[in-house]
Amino acid sequence: MKAPLHTTGEVLSSKRVGAYQHLTVVAPGVAERFRPGTFVAVSVDGTRLARRALWIHGVRAVGGHGPALQLVVEPVGPGTRWLAERPVGARLELTGPLGRAFALPKEPVATLLVGEGYAAAPLFPLAERLRERGCQVNLLLAAPDERHLLSALEARRSARAVTVVTADGSVGRRGSVADVVAGVLAQAAAEVVYAAGPVPTLHAVAAVAEQAGAWSQTAVEQPLTCGTGLCHGCPLPVVGEDGVARVVRACTEGPVVRGDRVRWAELAGTRPGAGGPA
């Protein structure tokens, strides 16, 4: 994998869609290195040292600028609100792309992509890569409500079948990923499952995939401070390839890890719904 870059980007556009702010940022070299599942660490205003980790939703060519990053921000704290308020032309100090990307299957197999909330962002460019390889793409998108459902319209373009669930039933079926994932997986006859979302959702998907004999990859979000592997602030309990239990860094050994390698129960225990620096 190509090394990440530490650079200054520029906001080319900033658009509110539902609960999320979609930023298009040109950062020379970063977009060229992007693979689905990687992220960028962005600095926010002066006295805040922790960086904000943002998923890369896609890369698109912007006239006169070359490829630009599409980033998704949920403005829920001082840092993410600051990011959401950056005007066009603002400079952003960022490092990326960081972390391990989703691994792509060697054969053109049927796949299921499960995403919840803004974390579904990396699944869209992943869907593109999978289709390029002849893989059948099925998408299961979830959110608490319609405002938090990411890019549902785009989803129709990038997947063969799309299932939408919301907790309040405002769009799609009422329910959660855990309620429907087994049925969707069986219907898609997926051999590979990719998931991105909160820990309980990932846990549910990994468990169902394992029962079905499917191979799963999960993009695990842990509270990140640096995103670059230096601070040890994002412990991720796993079982290594060698069968030995250890704690790795979610940012560097992850964020994408095999679903059957994560010690989900411990993860849930150590992080009762806590987010990172917001």
């Binding site: 805040r48 040292l49 601070c231 040890h232 602030g233 994002c234 412990p235 704690v247 150590t270």
Partner: peptide
Amino acid sequence: NPRAGGPAPRIAETPSGLVHSTGLP
């Protein structure tokens, strides 16, 4: 010997600082 480090959350942001207890992983 290897150390797994302490429980999460390990780091909190504070103005111009970070509060950290990683447990030396």
